[in-house]
Amino acid sequence: MLTALLRRLAQTLFVLFGISVLVFLVFFATPGADPTARIAGKNASPETMEKVRHEYGFDRPLPVQYATMMKKLFITRDLTSYVDRGEPVVPEIVMAAPVTLSLAAGGAAIWVIASVTMGTVAAAFRGTLIDRGLMILGLIGISLPVFWLGQVANLVTQARYHDTWMFSWVPGLGYIPFSESPTGWFRALIIPWIVLAVLFTGIYGRVLRADLVAASGEDFMRTARAKGLSPARVLLVHGLRTSMITFVSLFGLDFAQLIGGGALLTEVVFGLQGVGRLTYQALSNLDLPLIMASVMYSAVFVVLANAVVDVIYVFLDPRVRDA
């Protein structure tokens, strides 16, 4: 067990190393594009250019450049956009991370609960109107674009009905840190959470229903019924528990990419300064240090989430333990 965990950790580190090398090469060692000019910014003076070149080691071999970049990113944490004028990138990410984390975690909690309920109820009432209704609802959820749904939600809660008793509690767009006011944090995020969760509830609900329906044809479900268990117990304890295996792997991937900046549209619509928005800004300005930092940040989460999913797998499926 311990060796398996250690091996997994080594794998994770290796993947992160690979990603960092790849990103570094793409942005900093592309032939014909001088990273010095990019980092120094437009109309930089020759002195600035020289300073950047020296500081980042662009006059030295590639491995040294890579090492310097990693040192500035992880050890001294003084990697800065546009040298003199810009902000240090690490604090920027540290600022944005809690916003995205709050958004993704809350949304995930909602969509997990909602989709498990939806998928299970639909599977339990398979073939009936309830099933069909829920699945159509799921399909609608999948089809609604997040930015549109977000705008409609804003229109309703921020403008049209904001002054009525229904939505007067909704604060203005933006993020309220949890440490400042837990209730404010909750109120500011509840609408974005729901909007973010709608799409995923649709997908996960449908996937889970399909899995449960497939499971109902399995021999072990027949055994469970033959044992005299109640339909609810057969469905939940035997069916749902087994079907959660696909659910969890899907969840790990989606959650990781959301934390890594995948919730960009939701962040934009609700004026949340999260990682998605930060990455978007970095890309549109070709802010190389910030791109490097944010890509590394999301890579860490994706890889970590995968590692966590693997561990959960071991708990969910005893067959994996022995493999």
Binding site: D219, G228, T242, R319
Partner: peptide, 24 residues
């Protein structure tokens, strides 16, 4: 009513004992 019979009064075993148990 069947539920009270199944597993208590009448029980059943199946062909493939590999797939007849819940794997988890």
């Amino acid at each position: 009513s069947f539920r009270h019979l199944r597993g208590r009064e009448i029980s059943m075993i199946f062909q493939d004992p590999m797939t007849a148990f819940t794997p988890v």
